[in-house]
């Protein structure tokens, strides 16, 4: 089994050339299913609803759209450190995240507290290249490393009463200077419906660009829900709880009319104060049209059948 955690990979360029090598070696194009089976790399078909390109080609496209690693590492919304995106990296430089445990509890048959090492050895780390769309109307394409949230949840066995999953970020005032802003209801918390949590796209990420997560990106473990606005993808998780009731979330507690529980990416539903029709992809000059469900409608639109998209902000 190949674990993608090679520290020698440093830049986007090197990273891409490695992928090119894999591709010419016939590994990348060998098909997602086969790759998943041998645990190397899995290309998620990222077909936008309107595209008729074969999934694989679109996935390759996304590879070509990768946001530079420097940008991913230095442009972060992580209010526990600061609200200044370009200063988070500096302030998170000395963030200590080992030892680290994740408590999984609530409506499960086997509540457990996992050490981060247990998680890394227990689950196969795969690579997923996802679009990331911030509610502030900018976006990136990031090659994550991680495992599906479903695989963790299967391990603890949710009971039949479990309908939602609640997540919580570390809140350590000694390490996180931003916690001094008492206007925010710390700790950061997020939630998903259980079927959203079990969807194959939903990832617990432990790395990006083939390296362990940096503090500013939510080390050592964070959620990635690519069809929702970025604030749903909660960072530095210490607690996961299965619940029967819809959990309250951080931003919903602050401005429920602007940042709802669902927070599905939708160009047709504006933020009350700004348009969500377009986005600026970091490093691109021209705005892009924002895609419905961030381009993952094929994979997740069925989760919202019969619901009014206007209420899924």
């Amino acid at each position: 089994m190949i674990k993608i955690k090679s520290s020698e990979i440093t830049s986007k360029e090197e990273y891409l050339s490695r992928r090119d090598f894999l591709k010419t070696a016939g590994i990348v194009t060998a098909g997602a299913a086969l790759l998943a089976a041998c645990g190397a790399e899995e290309e998620i078909p990222a077909t936008p609803a309107t595209s008729n390109l074969p999934a694989e080609e679109v996935a390759t496209d996304l590879t070509q759209e990768l946001t530079a690693k420097e940008s991913v590492l230095n442009y972060n919304n992580y209010y526990e450190f600061t609200t200044d995106k370009e200063r988070v990296a500096k302030l998170a430089e000395d963030f200590v995240f080992s030892p680290w445990t994740v408590e999984v509890s609530g409506l499960v048959n086997k509540p457990q507290t996992f050490g981060i090492e247990d998680l890394l050895s227990k689950f196969t780390i795969e690579e997923r290249i996802y679009r990331m769309r911030c509610v502030e109307a900018w976006s990136m394409v990031i090659p994550w490393n991680g495992f599906t949230l479903a695989s963790l949840l299967n391990e603890v066995e949710p009971t039949s009463d479990a309908k939602f999953v609640r997540f919580e970020t570390l809140a350590d005032p000694d390490q996180m200077p931003g916690l001094i802003n008492k206007l925010y209801p710390w700790p950061y918390q997020e939630g998903l419906r259980l079927d959203e949590a079990m969807n194959d796209l939903t990832l617990l990420s432990t790395g990006l660009y083939g390296e362990s997560l940096a503090g500013q990106n939510g080390a050592p473990i964070r959620l990635v829900v690519p069809w929702k606005y970025g604030f749903k993808s909660i960072k530095s998780i210490v607690k996961i709880e299965l619940t029967a009731e819809q959990p309250s979330t951080f931003w919903e507690g602050i401005a429920p009319n602007e940042y709802g529980f669902y927070a599905n990416v939708n160009p047709a539903v504006d933020h009350p104060r700004w348009s969500q029709a377009t986005e600026r992809r970091i490093s691109e000059l021209k705005r892009r049209e924002t895609l419905y469900l961030n381009g993952y409608a094929d994979e997740v639109a069925h989760l919202y059948e019969g619901m009014d998209p206007n209420n899924l902000y």
């Binding site: 700004w274 348009s275 377009t278 000059l285 705005r287």
Partner: peptide
């Protein structure tokens, strides 16, 4: 000129319909 690259349809949506703008 840069953010909306003179795309008037987008500017209308972003400038004239949003209170902060």
């Amino acid at each position: 000129g840069l953010d909306y690259a003179f795309s008037w349809a987008l500017i209308q949506d972003a400038l004239l319909e949003k209170r902060y703008a």
